[in-house]
């Protein structure tokens, strides 16, 4: 990043032609909706065809992130049964303050074996949590992770409202040091050094593939092309919520495998942009508008005062 700035400076120094080019390039780079999204950022593609529901990823995540011991051990597969799913309307288990990732089972009539789906933070390219946070507690790193800073978090939970995937969870059990609990792509311990996250490393089935997001898209497309009967022709996460770093391949419609297929295909900030552009307009226009109304409405009275004042002088 530093390099780029220095380059730009020497560019500016390069006279008029250079300056004009800089301005142009800046302009095009900053036109809304035209961002390059950290071209070298990493991601993971999850192949539902390969997942056998062994929960190794859950166990690895728990260990890596130092999360509390679960009630049932990770080799207990009764957690997949519907009655274990708790009060979530039969939607299966979800991430919470004790687990950053969960695997859920889906029994579907059209395929002979159950389908398992791992869920965790999808690490959006344009994170909704980040843009909704009023203390800037979230950061999208160039490596692709969406990380969280508990030191500035106020606990307003707007990120949980904003996240289209219901991922951030809150440590409701704590009164004095609550915080948001969410998958951070093992950023501190692994991703920063270019290593894959713990869950990917632990997967015995290679259901999770780690790599550059651009390459993963290619891999995904290739798998679909080579086995058109085995996959639906869609990579979940390619465009969902403006694109995510974690993506999925599925043999059945994504809705049947517990995915929210209503997630808009544009970044969440697009829905808020309209209001955000109105704010400075109101801030700049209202003072003169209402001061003007005041002058117009009180003209008569002012004239009266004026005459009286004039008389006294």
């Amino acid at each position: 990043m530093k390099n780029k700035i220095i380059n730009r400076r020497s560019f500016i120094k390069g006279g008029f032609g250079g300056t004009a080019a800089t301005v142009l390039s800046l302009k095009s780079a900053r036109a809304a909706g035209d961002f390059d999204h950290y071209p070298d950022s990493m991601g993971v593609i999850v192949d539902l065809n390969r997942c056998v529901g062994c929960r190794s990823c859950e166990a690895a995540c728990n260990k890596e992130q130092g999360l509390p011991e679960p009630e049932k051990p990770f080799n207990d597969y009764s957690v997949f049964d519907a009655h274990e799913s708790g009060g979530h309307g039969g939607a299966g288990r979800r991430t919470d303050e004790t687990r950053y990732t969960v695997v859920n089972k889906y029994e579907l009539p059209e395929i002979d074996h159950p389908l398992y789906r791992k869920s965790q933070c999808n690490h959006c390219l344009e994170p909704a949590c980040l843009t909704s946070c009023f203390v800037n507690a979230y950061t999208k790193t160039p490596e692709g992770a969406v990380i969280y800073n508990a030191d500035v978090c106020v606990g307003c939970r707007t990120c949980m409202i904003a996240c289209p995937f219901y991922i951030p969870t809150f440590k409701y059990s704590s009164a004095f040091s609550p915080r948001i609990m969410k998958c951070i792509f093992c950023y501190d311990t692994r991703l920063k050094e270019g290593r894959p996250p713990a869950c990917v490393e632990a997967c015995p089935q290679e259901a999770l593939t780690f790599g550059k997001r651009v390459d993963l898209l290619e891999i995904g497309r290739k798998r679909i092309r080579q086995n058109p009967g085995g996959y639906v022709n869609h990579i979940y996460g390619e465009n969902e919520a403006g694109g995510t770093a974690w993506m999925y391949l599925s043999p059945v419609d994504f809705g049947e495998a517990g995915f929210d297929v209503h997630v808009p295909h544009e970044p969440v900030i697009n829905f808020v942009r309209d209001f955000l552009s109105i704010v400075p307009m109101v801030l700049v226009i209202w003072p003169a508008l209402f001061a003007g109304f005041h002058l117009l409405a009180n003209r008569k009275e002012q004239n009266k005062h004026h005459h009286i004042d004039g008389g006294e002088e």
Binding site: T131, S132, C133, F134, V135, N136, A137, V152, C153, V154, G155, C156, R157, T158, F170, K171, P178, R179, I269, V272, F275, L276
Partner: peptide, 21 residues
């Protein structure tokens, strides 16, 4: 609020001006 004692944070400690909140 999870951490009510941090109420002034968005004003003095860490600003996230793009957020509606």
């Amino acid at each position: 609020l999870g951490m009510p004692w941090r109420l002034p944070y968005p004003m003095v400690v860490s600003l996230g001006p793009a957020a509606v909140l």
